[in-house]
């Protein structure tokens, strides 16, 4: 079922994950990286050592990792392929919004530049993935609008969902169930001071969500 990844491909997975996580913080702790990839910290450390040798990342002991210029460029290109595939799968193949992230994870390593260029043309140069994250251009550059995490909002605040970040199957299927997707306008009705549960009004329906899931939702306030 799942494709066996070559070494180069799993290096790509790592730098992609670091690239995604760097949006928030300069140094990515290895434990964060490990939990993002769903592997043990030990194997993450091993792999990090390998990609340090390839000159893709820098490792600061006990602090975390950071992409080098080369690493960053390659990470952005993987992200570009990933997000383009997501677009294709949702827009053209009409696959469910919450499933395409995993599917794209497998497709992103598979093909060369010429296919990706064709895909860009076919999709008419989209600027963001179905989950609202920006698609880097062929130079690995991208623009994105500033937003805040939903869990930092207070009672009475309003906003529009920009993107879901970081993406994962769990997060996406949870949100799909509650119909929380980019572009939707929401307002915070209540923040429970006991357990931090947020009651939000979205698409005319009240939804209650926890702090952890709310931190994955980026809102333009």
């Amino acid at each position: 079922m799942s494709v066996q990844l070559t070494k180069g491909e799993s290096a790509e997975m790592y730098i992609k994950a670091i690239g995604e996580l760097t949006l928030e913080e300069a140094l990515v702790p290895i434990s964060t990286l490990a939990s993002r990839l769903g592997i043990s910290p030990v194997s993450a450390t091993e792999m990090v050592h390998r990609i340090v040798e390839q000159g893709l990342v820098e490792h600061e002991r006990y602090k975390g990792v950071r992409l080098t210029e080369t690493g960053k460029r390659r990470a952005m290109l993987v992200l570009r392929r990933h997000r383009l595939w997501e677009r294709f799968l949702t827009d053209k193949l009409k696959l469910p919004w919450e499933d395409v992230h995993d599917l794209a994870c497998r497709l992103e390593h598979a093909v060369g530049t010429e296919v990706i260029d064709a895909l860009v043309d076919f999709l008419d140069e989209p600027s963001s993935c179905p989950h609202g994250n920006p698609i880097p251009n062929s130079e690995g550059e991208f623009e994105y609008s500033d937003g805040v995490q939903l869990n930092t909002l207070r009672q009475g605040d309003e906003g529009v969902i920009l993107r879901i970040h970081p993406e994962s199957r769990d997060v996406l299927s949870f949100l799909a169930q509650k119909r929380i997707k980019p572009g939707a306008a929401l307002s915070v009705i209540d923040v429970d001071d006991f357990d931090g549960l947020l009651t939000i009004s979205i698409n005319g329906v009240d939804q209650i969500i926890g702090q952890r899931i709310a931190s994955h939702i980026v809102v333009a306030a």
């Binding site: 799942s2 990844l5 799993s10 997975m13 990839l37 769903g38 592997i39 995993d102 994870c105 199957r169």
Partner: peptide, 12 residues
């Protein structure tokens, strides 16, 4: 239900 990403391959 859940079998995704590389870490889960063993479980799968």
């Amino acid at each position: 239900k859940r079998a995704f990403h590389h870490g889960q391959r063993r479980r799968k």
